[in-house]
Design a protein around this nucleic acid. Sequence first.
DNA 1: GACATGTCCGGAGTTACCTCA
DNA 2: GGTGAGGTAACTCCGGACATG
Length: 257
Amino acid sequence: MGQEDVGLALRLSLGSGGDHHELRNQGPSSSQASCALLEPSLTLSLPADSCPTAPVVLRTPVVAAVKRELQAEEEDEAGERALYSVASSVAVDDDDGCNSRKKLRLTKDQSALLEDCFKEHSTLNPKQKVALAKQLNLRPRQVEVWFQNRRARTKLKQTEVDCELLKRCCETLTEENRRLHREVQQLRALSHPHPAGCFMAQLPAATLSICPSCERLAGASPATAVAAADRTNNKAAGSGGRPAQHFFSPFAKSAAC
DNA sequence: GACATGTCCGGAGTTACCTCA
DNA sequence: GGTGAGGTAACTCCGGACATG
């Protein structure tokens, strides 16, 4: 964690559930983050190595906001627990004090309704969220999380589908490429057969080069082809032959052939 | 108007619980 | 019964947009 990150991830530990009780000091002011919070009712969890050396003070508006939020949260929680803990499948933390996560299993009806809503719109505005939560006997936060996870699953599935599509597309193109290569070879063989005895005719197809006798590309790395063509052209130029023609052009008829 | 700060929200990645083979 | 894999709710971190002073 870099120096500038100190205090960036100040997080109020509020017992179970991390319902976005996030205190973030952004930018340069993050150096004002407090390791020893002045509010006794609040605790800050900071990595042991991230505490700034200088004593710093958390800005009061932040603390006030947090207190307000905490109070509202406590009220909400109390109400919500009374409301939902019995009726829904939500497993509320026991009173054993440990904040072990309990896994919520949505009922089929709940899942179906959530799916229906998701089909209509993949994101919810706050009103919709609260209404849906009420309808489902869940906390708004749970609905929010469900939609977040659902969007993630949708995206993942879409990515997989896209990937599969691209793979098939690639295979098709590769096959098409092979087919076209074969076609080109057949056409060349038909229209411009190498002269009898031409050694290039015996070369494997992978050995691309310019045939010195017919000056046709017989499949070559460019360097090989150029070298071969240069040899040919030098010979031709020395004997007052044709001007240099390095590569095969389908439109230029070879004199040799 | 530019700037600092706070708040809200969503995405991405991760963790932890649960079910099932 | 133990176990590993897979599904998924919940959590954490972060950045962007917007509001406010």
